[in-house]
């Protein structure tokens, strides 16, 4: 897959629906993930964006980085906004108020907007069966407000509201499994993706949009600011998350699990953890605990792929 990545970038769509000049931090993996996802959009795509980093860095008055129709309303309601857009497109096409041009709806939010405050609206939208793709750009904390922990923050990570200390290992809970929650709605398509595997990411976005009904894609997005990692390591870190099994890439199509990448052997989690300041305080015991959990989780997903 990595070789594949080397030789076909020239085949990637040249269009940039997400324009340069946005105000994302230096080396922002989430901005890259958004940029890549946008490249996979069909021409008629409307985006609904939750409050968060991407909204702030892309739409500061009076400028916009968006070259597709884009709406931001609030933090927790983006799946509901997208539901309304989708319903309107359907009703208006049927009533002849707007051409039936196959316009697609993509909703997007961060891990806070998705797995915490926006979970209810997302669950509603998935359950009701709207034809939309929801993408969670997961940088594993509330980065826009200053690196506070979310339910997507990994075990052991030090954030401003889960700081490490004499009596704290940092985040005390294991990362919420959003892909499994989405899949529990029995929707036709769920996938995980990483900006470090652009072709895989773009193929999944295209598939998620094309599939009739709701689709959910969870994209791990490296945040140098919040992870306290070197900006130039964003791609490497995304790759290491996958190669260590910390963030496995897979698809769930009509309930069928499929690994996106065959890994003969998982790398040790230290390879991933050691490059990030947020894990710097971890003891060997804690790292061992993480290692065991990662392997067990990875095996669990692999088993599902039958």
């Amino acid at each position: 897959m990595q070789n594949y990545t080397v030789f076909v970038p020239r085949l990637v769509p040249k269009k940039e629906p997400f324009a340069p000049g946005h105000r994302a931090c230096i080396g922002c993996g989430e901005a890259l993930a958004v940029r890549l996802a946008c490249k996979a959009f069909p021409p008629n795509t409307i985006v609904a964006n939750a409050t968060g980093c991407m909204e702030v860095i892309s739409s500061q008055y009076p400028m916009t980085a968006w070259r597709v129709p884009w709406i931001h309303v609030l933090f927790e309601n983006t799946a509901a906004i997208a539901s309304g857009i989708e319903a309107a497109l359907k009703a208006m096409a049927r009533k002849g108020l707007r051409p039936d041009d196959g316009t697609k709806v993509v909703a997007m939010g961060g891990d806070g907007g998705t797995s915490d405050i926006g979970l209810q609206a997302l669950s509603g939208a998935l359950e009701r069966g709207h034809d939309l793709l929801y993408i969670c750009f997961d940088n594993e904390a509330y980065m826009n407000t200053g690196i506070q922990r979310s339910s997507a923050t990994p075990f052991g990570a030090s954030t401003t509201t889960s700081p490490s200390g004499i009596k704290s290992i940092g985040q005390k809970t294991w990362k919420k499994n959003m892909a499994a929650i989405a899949a529990a709605h029995d929707i036709p398509y769920v996938a995980t993706a990483s900006h470090s595997y652009p072709h895989d990411l773009m193929a999944k976005v295209a598939k998620g949009i094309a599939v009739p009904g709701p689709a959910y894609i969870h994209i791990l997005s490296v945040c140098p600011t919040g992870w306290r990692s070197a900006p130039d390591l964003s791609i490497r870190l995304g790759r290491l998350a996958v190669e260590t099994g910390v963030f496995p890439l897979y698809e769930i199509e009509d309930g069928e699990y499929k690994m996106s990448l065959e890994l003969p052997k998982l790398r040790p989690v230290e390879d991933y953890l050691n490059l990030q300041g947020r894990f710097r305080h971890l003891s060997e015991d804690t790292i061992k605990e993480i290692q065991e959990r990662v392997v067990a989780e990875y095996e669990r997903i692999k088993e599902k792929t039958g």
Binding site: I46, A80, A88, A121, G124
Partner: peptide, 27 residues
Amino acid sequence: DAEYIPVESEHSAMSACLGAAATGARA
């Protein structure tokens, strides 16, 4: 002839109406 969205909360009821209105629908 309308799309009826049985939302999961009033917060989403108003939000879905905004999405619809922003698309040009009468909500």
